Amino acid sequence: MKKLTEEQFNRAVDFVMTHARPVDQHLFNYYFNSGSKSKVLDSLTHFQNDDGGMGYGLEPDVRSPQSSPIATTIAMQYVRQVKASWRHPLVKKCMKYFTNTYKEHNNWPLTLQHMNDYPHAEWWHYSTFDETFSINPGVEIIGYYHAYPQSIPENLFPLFHDFIFQHIENKPAGIEFHELLCYTRLVEEMPDPGKSIINDYLRNTCRKIVTKDPKKWGGYCAKPIVLAPTPTSPLANVLDDVIQLNLDYEIDNQQIDGSWLPHWTWGQYQDTWENEASVEWQGYITVKTLITLQSYGRIEAF
Rank of each mutant, 00 (worst) to 15 (best):
I135V: 15
V287M: 12
A147M: 13
T101K: 05
W217I: 02
S67N: 10
L235W: 06
P172E: 01
G267K: 08
H263T: 14
T205D: 11
V139W: 09
N275S: 14
W217S: 01
K92T: 06
V62R: 02
T18Y: 00
P149Q: 03
P231R: 04
G35I: 04
V226D: 08
P69N: 12
F47D: 04
V13I: 13
H105P: 00
V210K: 00
D130M: 09
E250I: 00
H105I: 03
C221N: 06
S259I: 08
Y296N: 05
Q25E: 11
T99E: 13
A75S: 15
S36Y: 02
L41E: 02
H263A: 10
W217K: 00
M95K: 04
I209Y: 03
D117P: 02
F165A: 02
Y78P: 04
R298F: 07
C182M: 11
Q113G: 07
Y296F: 15
S68C: 08
I141V: 13
P158N: 05
N116C: 08
T211D: 10
H26S: 11
L202K: 03
E276G: 01
P224Q: 05
L261D: 14
T265K: 13
T265F: 08
A20L: 01
Q150A: 00
A236F: 09
G283E: 05
T128M: 10
N170A: 14
D162M: 08
N107K: 06
A75C: 14
N10R: 13
A75V: 06
N246D: 15
A301T: 13
W108G: 00
L4N: 02
M76G: 01
S127G: 00
F9H: 05
R87A: 12
S295N: 08
K103W: 06
L293S: 07
S278Y: 06
T99Q: 12
I168Y: 03
N155K: 08
L159H: 09
D130Q: 13
H146V: 03
T73N: 06
I152S: 02
H26W: 13
E188W: 03
T128L: 12
F133W: 15
G57C: 04
C94A: 15
S34Q: 14
Y78T: 03
V62S: 00
Q268V: 12
V79Y: 01
W108C: 03
D200Q: 15
L239T: 01
S64C: 12
T99N: 09
K103S: 10
C206P: 04
M1I: 07
H88N: 13
N100L: 12
P224I: 03
D130R: 13
I74A: 00
Q77H: 09
S36H: 00
V13A: 13
C94I: 12
V279Y: 02
G35A: 08
Q8P: 01
R203G: 05
L290Y: 04
W124S: 05
S85H: 08
S151W: 10
K39I: 01
N49M: 11
L235I: 05
D248M: 00
H167Y: 15
T286R: 07
E6L: 10
S127L: 10
G55E: 07
L110K: 11
N10E: 14
T286W: 07
K208D: 14
V287Q: 09
K37P: 09
F177Y: 15
D192Q: 10
T205P: 06
A236G: 09
S38K: 14
T272V: 14
N116I: 08
L41C: 03
I285F: 09
L110T: 13
C182K: 04
G194R: 04
D14N: 14
Q25P: 07
E169S: 13
F32H: 01
